[in-house]
């Protein structure tokens, strides 16, 4: 496990629509590994590894963007109100910190409320950047920010902000590094704006016009105290998507992944996610339709600043993709 790379990936700035910094990090790593690399009109990065076969095209997508916040109002005293960029819950962020593109750091806190036993609305939270007035505030309405938390490796577990979906980006990079010759042309798509509209994967897949599309993303687990029942656990291997709230995986794609896992002896789980979806939902509907599926890395506390994954799951996801894409 290349922890240095994963650290770099998780800590780079990249809320939806503002992926320049993370794109530069990934671009530098993949350029020597791919036959060609380009950036699409909305900002997605594509690395093409040419195949040896009949030119069938497969897309592997992991999104570069991360959840964040955007300033909606600066009050007279310099406190900031904000809205969500992607799905964030007030419960996860009070007491946490955010970082703006220019390095400004803010603390998230909450107004005093009559009934403090209730979960506050996002409108009741504010960011304090230490300003003393509106004029003194170093940020303005429309400025985006991301959450702050370092990557920690503890035994076989990794804890960090933005494992959703930088661990997917990591898996794509590792797969690209390790993969020998493949029959299909492989398009490694590092997409933008997944957390808000899925527009990056949708438009890049339109351009590529692929024969098959796979998203590589995190999924939730059912293995925490009183979790919503879900038959996916951290540490039990990659999850092969059956369906989620935005997509039903193409049965042939799902079975291709299952067959690959069984052939090389990788443990896997079958995933049904009730709340959430991935880039595959958008890629599936491009043009005349694209058989699509998804390989997920089980992840606890998705969309919190401290997401947790298992190293073995990550490594086995790379192995699963390699087995599926380069059949022996």
């Amino acid at each position: 496990m290349d922890l240095e790379l994963l650290t770099q990936l998780t800590q780079a700035f990249g809320p939806p629509g503002y992926e320049e910094e993370i794109r530069a990090v990934i671009r530098e790593v993949v350029t020597p590994l791919a036959d060609s690399v380009w950036v699409d009109p909305l900002g997605s990065l594509v690395a093409l590894k040419r195949g040896t076969g009949g030119g069938k095209k497969t897309v592997l997508a992991a999104h570069m963007d991360e959840i964040g916040v955007m300033v909606t109002y600066v009050d007279e005293k310099g406190y900031l109100r904000f809205t969500r960029m992607g799905g964030i819950s007030p419960l996860m962020h009070i007491g946490g910190r955010v970082r703006f593109a220019d390095g400004t750091v803010g603390v998230i806190s909450v107004e005093r409320r009559e009934d403090s036993s209730k979960i506050p609305a996002l409108e009741q939270l504010y960011i304090d950047v230490g300003a003393s007035s509106r004029e003194d505030a170093p940020v303005k309405v429309g400025d985006p920010a991301v959450f702050m938390r370092p990557l920690v490796a503890q035994g076989r577990r990794l804890i960090s902000k933005t494992l959703d979906d930088r661990v997917g980006c990591y898996v794509l990079i590792e797969t690209l590094r390790r993969l020998g010759p493949t029959p299909d042309d492989l398009y490694f798509l590092f997409s933008v704006q997944e957390e808000v509209t899925l527009s990056g994967a949708r438009t890049s897949a339109y351009k590529i016009d692929p024969d098959m599309a796979l998203a590589v993303d995190v999924t939730m687990t059912g293995d925490t105290p009183k979790a919503l029942p879900m038959a996916v656990e951290m540490g039990k291997g990659p999850a092969i998507k059956v369906q989620d709230s935005g997509m039903i995986a193409h049965p042939a794609v799902r079975d291709l992944l299952i067959a690959a896992a069984e052939r090389v002896g990788i443990p896997y789980q079958r995933e049904i996610l009730l709340g959430g979806s991935t880039d595959a939902a958008a890629m599936q509907l491009v043009r005349g339709g694209v058989p699509s599926g998804c390989v997920s890395i089980p992840c606890r506390y998705v969309h919190s600043p401290s997401e947790m994954v298992d190293v073995t799951d990550v490594e086995q996801t790379v192995a699963l993709l390699s087995a599926a894409l380069a059949p022996a």
Binding site: P41, L42, M70, V71, T72, T83, V141, G142, S199, R202
Partner: peptide, 20 residues
């Protein structure tokens, strides 16, 4: 104010290969 409402840009931007 960010995060309020939606406009035609919401469907234009994702057509074909993407439109800034």
């Amino acid at each position: 104010q960010p995060g309020i409402g939606g406009t035609d840009a919401g469907t234009i931007h994702f057509t074909r290969e993407g439109v800034p």
